[in-house]
Amino acid sequence: MTAVTSAPSVARTAAGAPRRRRPRVAPGRVALYAVLGVLLLVFLFPLAWAVSASFKPRGDIFSSTSLIPAPATLDNYQRLLGEQPFWSWFGISVGVAVVATVVSVFVCALAGYGFAKFRFAGKRLLFGVMFSSLSVPFAVILVPLFILVVKSHLSNPWFALIVPWVAPAFGIFMMQQYIVQSVPDEILEAGRIDGNTEFQIFRRLVLPLLRPSLGALAVWSFLQTYNSFLWPLVLVSDSSSYTLPVGLNTLFQAENRSFDLVLAGAVLASVPTVLVFLLLRKQLLEGLSAGAVKG
């Protein structure tokens, strides 16, 4: 954060001063930063290694231990993009994730609003049923869902990779929590007096207020869809409509273990999610924490 560099001088004199009388603060601090620093390395090393290895010639990936590739080469990337339908996998993964995210954010906001701001017969039961789906493992419905989708000729990836996943209970719960806390009833009341329909109130008055949590939910949903593996693995049989994870898996399972290509693919595949996360990290982390504390 930016505050980090400038704040300490102020914080130390203002808030920190009285506590400084405790003598054991300093060694504790050193240990704290040491532990966190080691953890930082544990988290970053595998990633740094992968990025570095993806720029090394195949023969160097294991033999050279340096994190700086010398010589560095784009060969892995060029061969991956030249020999494999990488962009097609990439397009399907990103496309599916974007569509699923947009639809799911809307569905979750609608349902979350319905549960948060209305009283109606059966609400407790319906909410409970919705929430209970959080504890249904996906492996339970894997087989029947696959059969249903295939038998009703809906196994087109643009349908089957998206539609079953656009109404996650987690998202509805998150929206419901947020709406209860941050949308005042007075606004809805005023909207009704102005003669808006219930849907107009939702779209014009409520949705704009939900922007922070919609962002959090969107990132969450994008990550879920983009990274999902088991369902696309089962569903997609045609290699031209593989998603990225399935495509990379196939490459890696191939006989010559083309780890040079797969490393390059792994780095490229991580770009969209890391980018989305870094751009919207505040919203995501705060959205998740808000749900946790209030829930």
Partner: peptide, 16 residues
């Protein structure tokens, strides 16, 4: 930084 692994695809993690 600690959150980043959750952002990555399991295949990427498994591969590395």
């Amino acid at each position: 930084t600690f959150f980043v692994p959750m952002v990555l695809s399991p295949i990427v993690i498994a591969l590395v």
